[in-house]
Every structure is written in structure tokens, then in C-alpha cells.
Nucleic acid binder design. Structure first.
Lengths: 193, 193
DNA sequence: GTCTATAGTTTGATAGAC
DNA sequence: GTCTATCAAACTATAGAC
């Protein structure tokens, strides 16, 4: 755990907001400085480059997803309950890091190597956590025999998109959104009784 | 229907590919010209601006979605079958316009007004087609009473993401992907019998 | 329709005073 | 740590010859 100055924190959260609103490439260092009320050159006392900011946002966001979901995957909850709680935890990470997760999902393409490869590796590892739980559920004859990669991607696609429409001041809490999504994805839209 | 020169067609499809691979802002007019084997200035005999290219890609892609899905929504298929066929049709548009649909989903933010508002309006109209069918299914007591906006967004999120992983040379046809997705989303991951 | 040449901005980043 | 000043490179787009 590295200590981070208050100023650096302020820069990072402003960058998250602007990178989300306008996109990474469309946000100039001058835009960022203006939003902070300083000159562009002053930023370089806190940050090595614009890309370092992108990387630090993406990397911290990945940590948040792993830290929230891995303990649940490693718990001894019943498989169905486990997958539900993983989905809820994932959605809660998104909703409390809405700007950062939007940047995480949309702007990683603009990282340079080797960061881009490292990002892809973590993304794949994360998907692997979901795949393992889904495979377990299939082995237990609890889940249908869809391809496990297909299933994991379909679930993650549906829940990742919450970053575009969730509003903290709306009628649903983050947990409610996660539980609705989990109910929808595990049981389907069709009424069975 | 406007006649489009072969050269213009070639420019558009190259733009789709580059805008997808690198992003709209990261693709310079010089990159595009180089990929076509001409000088940047020569492009302007065919195209008014770089943004005009983005708009024409997004607008044509929207047409494809509407043209494929609306006739099914207006047919008198049984509601469940209708929703399945809409999902299949949507996935097939994505898979046969993979570059264009990726640009459509990811780069619309970089349109200027009034194109950006027009894009948002069509997007919302399109979601409305799905919402209407879902509401019908709820009224028929066939679908569960999820919020219809929530249901439409969840389905569209899951199926839109195919643009990132579908491979035409993989083991599944576009129709098979659509049917799998439809089966997953309508009936859920959990085994019920 | 394609070229060369270039105008006019904007960009990320640095130098050096305070 | 913030400023002013500035650099070198990249950008979209245009002018005008062929």
C-alpha cells in the first residue's frame, strides 16, 4: 500500500470523470488541468505522463474487482448462491467506481505494451474465476450445459453494461440491481410457474 | 438509395476496420490513406471530413438493425418466438457487420451535434421495439414482471457484446450464437428439470 | 482523382524562474 | 509545486498543379 498525496488523488478522480465523459484520447492534458484549476505543466509534478494516469485507473479498478469477487469464489457457499453473490459484488464495484469502471471497460485499448498485455491477462484471469464456478455448477448438474466461456461472457456482458445506465440517485440500490441481474440471468425471462 | 462509387465503398470499409481496431480518434486521416495506398489529401475528393465517415458508418449500421428486427417485431409470431427471432436477427446483423457494429457501439460519443442526438434517438427507438415485445409477453403472463427497460437493456447488453468475441471461422454460425443467447436469456442458466 | 505543399491548430511534454 | 514560455510532433483540412 503506497501513500498517495491528496493532490494526486484529486487528479486521478478528475481524470476518471473526464476520461469517462469524453474518452481518453479526447481529453487533453490541458482539459484535465483546467478542470483542476491549474496549468497543464503543473500536472507533471504529480504524474509522469497522461498514460500513467490511464494505467493507474485501470489497474486499481482491476484490483477492486478481484478483491471483491475472489473471496466469494473461494468461499464454501452453495454454487448457485456463490454465483449470485459474485454478480452482486461485481455490480457493486461498478456502481461505486462508475467513472473508473467505464474507463476500465472502454479505454484499455489505448494502453501501450506491456501494460496492454498485462491488462488482457488480468481480464482473462477474472473471467476464469466465473468460468470455474460455472463449470462446478455444471458438474453438480445444477446448471445447463452451455459452453462455460460462452456463459461467463454472456453474464459479464450483461452486468458490465450497468456502468452506462446505473444512477446512484435512482430507485434501485446497487445490491438490488445485482440481485435483479442475477435473478434474470440464472432463471431467465420466461415465467416457469 | 444513393449510388456509391467503388472507391467510396473501399474507403468506408477500410475506415470501419481501422476505427474498430484502433478507435476513431486514434485513426488519423493519414493512417486511413496509407491503408488505401493513397495520400491523405486525396481522400478529400471522396469524403467531406473524417467525421462524415464515422456518421455514415453509424447511420448505415442503425439502418441494418432496424431493417432486420422491425419486420419481425411487426409480424404475428408468438411472443416468445418473436423475441427469439429478434435476438437472432440482431446477432446476425452484428456478425455480418462486425467492424461497423463495433464502431457503432463504441465511437458514437465522438459525433458532433446534431448527429449525436439523432444517434441517441434512434438507439432509444430501437430499444423501444424490444421493450414493446417484452411488455406484450408480460401482459400475456408469459414473461416475469421485471421492469421492461431493465429487461431490454440486459438482453441487448448481452447480445451486443458478441461483437468483441464472435469469429466467423469459429465453430458456431451466427444463427447458432443467436439461438444460444436467446435460450440463455429466456430460460436462464439454471437447470429446471 | 491524385499529387505536393502547406496553412492553422492542437497535442504531450520539458526548461527554468519563483 | 506552480507558473510562463516554448518545443517538436501530430493533427484535419485546403490550395492549386497535373
Amino acid at each position: 500500500m503506497k501513500a498517495v498525496s491528496e493532490r494526486k488523488q484529486q487528479i486521478t478522480s478528475t481524470a476518471e470523470r473526464l476520461f469517462n465523459q469524453k474518452g481518453y484520447l479526447a481529453t487533453s492534458v490541458r482539459d484535465l488541468a483546467e478542470a483542476l484549476g491549474i496549468e497543464a505543466a503543473s500536472l507533471y509534478s504529480h504524474v509522469q505522463s497522461k498514460e500513467e494516469l490511464l494505467w493507474s485507473i485501470a489497474d486499481r479498478c482491476a484490483d477492486e474487482f478481484f478483491d471483491a469477487v475472489r473471496p466469494i469464489a473461494e468461499s464454501n457457499l452453495h454454487t448457485q448462491q456463490k454465483l449470485t453473490e459474485m454478480i452482486v459484488a461485481h455490480v457493486m464495484v461498478i456502481t461505486r467506481n462508475q467513472d473508473a469502471s467505464a474507463v476500465f471497460f472502454r479505454e484499455w485499448k489505448h494502453l501501450s505494451e506491456p501494460q496492454k498485455s498485462q491488462y488482457a491477462q488480468r481480464q482473462s484471469d477474472y473471467e476464469g474465476i466465473f468460468k470455474a464456478v460455472i463449470r462446478k455448477g455444471m458438474e453438480e448438474n445444477l446448471f445447463k450445459n452451455f459452453d462455460e466461456g460462452f456463459s461467463a461472457r454472456t453474464i459479464l456482458s450483461a452486468i458490465n453494461w450497468t456502468h452506462t445506465w446505473y444512477r446512484p440517485d435512482g430507485e434501485w440500490t446497487a445490491r438490488q440491481v445485482g440481485e435483479h441481474l442475477s435473478g434474470f440471468l440464472l432463471n431467465g425471462l420466461i415465467r416457469t410457474i
